[in-house]
């Protein structure tokens, strides 16, 4: 857990970069396929990107959160 905490910011930075690359989905630019018969594939892909963003940010709260409430108390900030 400690090792993943120290590598956490790097993992999250890599995942965000990956999301930004996947966001530019040139491969579906002119594809008119309807997923499940009703969702255009470009919309489906980007809805999946939104869900992947949720997963990435959830992981960020577990392995790369910049502060803990204990630290804030210690600093007398709260």
């Amino acid at each position: 857990m400690k090792a993943s905490k120290s590598r956490g910011p790097v993992i999250i930075a890599a995942l965000v970069l990956l999301l930004l690359i996947l966001h530019q989905d040139n491969w579906f630019w002119t594809d008119a396929t309807l997923v499940f018969g009703f969702i255009p594939i470009a919309l489906f892909w980007h809805a999946c990107i939104s869900m992947a963003a949720v997963a990435t940010w959830f992981l960020a709260t577990r392995i790369a959160w910049p502060l803990s409430d204990d630290v804030e108390d210690h600093e007398g900030g709260v």
Partner: peptide
């Protein structure tokens, strides 16, 4: 959606 929404999500 990609231009304004999924980009904002990230």
């Amino acid at each position: 959606y990609g231009m304004l929404a999924s980009s904002s999500g990230i």
